[in-house]
Design a protein around this nucleic acid. Structure first.
Length: 573
RNA sequence: CCACCUGUGGUGAAAUGGAUAUCACAACGGUCUUCGGAACCGUUAUUCCAGGUUCGAGUCCUGGCGGGUGGACCA
């Protein structure tokens, strides 16, 4: 039984002893001020009115009767809070648990037996992997890890638009620039840069209302695969893009599956789900779910308080909407999930509401299992980042600049390329994950590059510092021992460490990795303050073994927390 | 025009309806013969406006004002 359950039960018992029946749930929270205790409940204030009593008097009455072995002190404070302080040996037991469970500490079984499929990143072949994709990738990976940390079997998927007008624009651009042959023998980066240029050229031309017809015809030919020359360009461009994305996932530290060493378990493509989606739309047109309008097949979202959307356009081609229907089925056929999460930027939130409504008629069981999670957009303070490949900033450029800064920051200290990469990735991922992911992020590269304050590198540094202290203890022949010395005063650090599993649960329930990120910062600050004020490894001090145990516990919690965020925890840096 | 999201120090953020609104950056001032200074300590400064619900509102409701995103053949 967890400490929260034990204490809640004790309060429950007290209430019934006092003859108070209640429907209000007993909620335990951590007071903002540690001085107020480890847990607090507002139950007295909540029940005061129905009981016809003064909240403070009621609180006093309840407080007097709460007893469990782990409670050292119960106090009434403020308007009627009941503050609870735990006994020192509770913390000692928790430290033992943290050391014993090691990299499993903080895991739970809330999602035991669940089969979850997540979808994120979703870059489009023929286009750049840009910072928006980095954001989706980071958030999607963290949520996937959080689900896994909570006991679910999780499959990662990536859905990519390998057909559609953007491809036609790119291919038109390639042809107009004289073909791809000249770059064939160059590096992957050169090839993909050429591709990016070609796309930009096509897109600009299209926007200027030139060659619109040509590109639409081209689009049709790409669909039909009737032209050998076009097919060759298409196959080259698609493969170059996919290879290049994979290089970027490696660089981003995206976890790779063990079967084929690729970032995702499943890759789905628009070209593979379009026909099925179109069939479903036509099928449901006959059932009256969809309607014909202006030569297109639409879903009348307006009948459901939403807006109408086109599923099959007037040329008879499936739009993104109907492809998504096909995708839901293909995903389920590939991996019979109990839940499916689709993580995208929030600019398509409204679109997804309509889509899920339509899906609830076409595939009721699948729609029930599907959740869309919209994340904020990455806004840039312009002019501060190099942008070698166009007006959007590529993942490549972003990471390159961060790595350069990390090296400068180290001031001549030799860092392995691997470590430099880990630090750069930590900087950007933490900047994304430290705040509510549903909101836009104003990405100030300078700030993220500064590596100060609440940053990923700060956490990594704290982790490395813990490792160093443990090493020093080892050299002196002092082993960590989770046994409080006589007269030990419980530190703030201990009073934060045991909260990690609770934080993970809250983070899961609200699907908010930033809860974990913020907790880790608080924990690291608490540790560093302690470190600054106390000589932790002191040969002559009997408390050193316990201090080393706390240091080790801190290392474990930071390590596990960073794991959920998808950030590496190097032992030295 | 309609829908959804959003408004917290100079800047960027946090806060299951709880106590004196927290953290970082910036600014200013300190600590240092390091246990690894990418550190630690201190000072200044904040909930868009008006009502309402509640014992209690940054948080919930209503109405303003400001910002973002969407609103039929792009995704």
């Amino acid at each position: 039984m967890t400490i929260v359950e034990t204490v809640t039960q004790a309060i429950e018992k007290t209430l019934s002893q006092l003859g108070i029946s209640h429907e209000t749930e007993i909620i335990l929270e951590h007071p903002r001020e540690l001085a107020h205790g480890d847990y607090a409940t507002n139950i007295a204030m909540a029940l005061a009115k129905t009981e016809g009593k003064n909240p403070r008097e009621l609180a006093e009455a309840i407080a007097k009767n709460i007893t469990t072995p782990d409670i050292a002190k119960v106090e009434v404070a403020g308007p009627g809070f009941i503050n609870i302080t735990l006994i020192p040996s509770f913390f000692e037991r928790e430290i033992i648990t943290i050391l014993k469970e090691s990299d499993r500490y903080g895991r739970n079984e809330i999602l035991q037996g669940e089969k979850i499929i997540t979808e994120f990143t979703d870059p489009n072949p023929f286009k750049l992997l840009h910072i928006g994709h980095v954001m989706s990738n980071t958030i999607g990976e963290s949520l996937s890890r959080l689900f896994e940390f909570s006991g679910a079997e999780v499959k990662w998927s990536n859905y990519q638009g390998d057909v559609g007008m953007h491809v036609a624009k790119a291919i038109w651009g390639i042809m107009d620039l004289g073909g791809y042959e000249p770059v064939l023998n160059q590096s992957l980066y050169e090839q993909v840069t050429f591709l990016g240029k070609a796309y930009a050229h096509g897109a600009t031309t299209y926007k200027d209302n030139m060659h619109v017809n040509d590109m639409q015809q081209l689009n049709k030919k790409i669909y039909e695969r009737t032209d050998d020359t076009i097919n060759a360009i298409y196959d080259w461009g698609r493969q170059v893009s996919l290879d290049y994305f994979e290089v970027q996932y490696k660089r981003l530290g995206t976890r790779h599956n063990t079967t084929d060493n690729k970032a995702f378990d499943y890759y789905f493509f628009e070209s593979q789900v379009g026909n099925l989606g179109k069939e479903k739309a036509i099928e449901n047109l006959n059932r009256g779910v969809f309607e014909e309008s202006e030569g297109a097949i639409i879903f009348p979202g307006e009948k459901h308080g939403l807006h109408n959307r086109v599923f099959v356009n007037s040329l008879g081609l499936p739009t993104y909407e109907s492809k998504e229907l096909g995708l839901a089925q293909v995903k389920y056929d590939t991996y019979p999930y109990t839940s499916s999460f689709i993580i995208t930027a929030n600019e398509i939130n409204e679109y997804f509401k309509v889509l899920l409504k339509a899906m609830s008629f076409v595939f009721p069981e699948l729609a029930e299992k599907t959740t869309h999670i919209g994340h904020g957009m990455m806004k840039l303070i312009t002019g501060k980042m190099s942008s070698r490949t166009g007006d959007v900033i590529s993942a490549e450029d972003l990471l390159g600049d961060l790595e350069t800064m990390a090296i400068e920051r180290a001031e001549g200290k030799e860092l392995s390329p691997e470590l430099v990469s880990q630090i750069a990735v930590a900087a950007v991922k933490f900047a994304i994950l430290k705040q509510d992911t549903s909101k836009d992020i104003i990405f100030d590269p300078e700030q993220s590059l500064s590596f100060e304050g609440d940053s990923g590198p700060y956490l990594q540094y704290t982790h490395a510092r813990c490792c160093s202290l443990l090493k020093k203890g080892g050299e002196l022949g002092i082993e960590a021992q989770a046994k409080q010395p006589d007269g030990w005063e419980v530190t703030e650090l201990e009073r934060y460490l045991y909260r990690f599993p609770e934080i993970v649960e809250i983070s899961l329930q609200t699907r908010a990795p930033h809860r974990i990120a913020n907790y880790l910062i608080e924990l690291a600050q608490t540790f560093n303050t302690w470190y600054g004020n106390t000589k932790l490894v002191d040969e002559g001090d009997l408390a050193t073994p316990y201090r080393l145990a706390l240091t080790h516990a801190t290392k474990n919690v930071i390590n596990n927390g960073l794991w959920v965020l998808g950030i590496e925890a190097p032992e030295s840096m």
